[in-house]
Amino acid sequence: MRLATIGLVLRDASTPAVTQVKLSAGKSGYTLHTSLLAVISARYEGDARDLIRTGHAALSAYTPPSGALTFDPEMADLPPGKPVAWASDEQLDIKSGLSGIMHLRVYPEPTAEYTGTVYLRTIRKPLAPLSLDNLEASPEVPEQYHLSLLDWAAYRALRNIDSDVGNISGSKNFREPFDELVRQARRDTLRKLFAPTSWGFGRSGFVWDSW
């Protein structure tokens, strides 16, 4: 679990319960699967391109400046129809309002004509914990990390030798290489997800002023 939640090594674009969101007419918000840590991208079924990624503030509080030189769905008050943008920066369960559960918001809210499925690329936690009840189960994290999980197991075991403090000095020999693996896995994941950002004057909310 630690490798998945901090190292971000479990990416999923195929598990239906995790990666598919069926839209409903007039509904813009959807509670996502409890295993999700992040949504990388979202695509409406049948489309060749992803939906535009944005955030709650852009959808709810942005007023386009007069004279904007380009059209941006994030800056427009679009009528209900086919979603063109999405946000996942809300960590609130839609029904209970409790935090910690990812929330997908699509914009604009779909009409009955556009109640298809949105397909997600995600980063998640394991769907089922390993258990002594199934000794044949394999960890969900990629195979290249399996041996390193033994370092974490050894650390935990040595911590539990003594009922009071455990074998702290011996356990560190296994904790440190595992923590370094987690840090390296996280760096690798973020590097693969990196996309350069372009900007310029006279577009995306910038306007030329006359003097």
Rank of each mutant, 00 (worst) to 15 (best):
A4M: 09
I6C: 05
V9T: 12
V9P: 03
L10C: 03
D12H: 07
S14I: 09
A17I: 09
T19P: 06
Q20E: 15
A25Y: 00
S28W: 07
T31Y: 00
S35C: 11
L37T: 07
V39Y: 02
S41H: 02
L51K: 05
R53I: 10
L59K: 05
S60E: 07
S66M: 12
A68L: 05
D72L: 06
L78Y: 06
P79M: 04
P80N: 02
K82F: 09
A85E: 01
M102P: 04
R105V: 14
T111A: 05
T111H: 08
G116C: 00
V118K: 02
Y119S: 15
R124T: 05
P126A: 07
L127S: 07
A128L: 13
S131L: 09
A137M: 10
P139R: 01
P139L: 04
Y145W: 08
Y145N: 01
H146W: 14
L149C: 02
A157R: 12
A157T: 14
L158W: 09
R159E: 12
S163E: 15
G166V: 03
K172G: 00
E176G: 02
E180G: 04
R183Q: 13
Q184L: 11
A185K: 06
F194S: 11
W199F: 14
F206L: 12
D209G: 14
S210K: 14
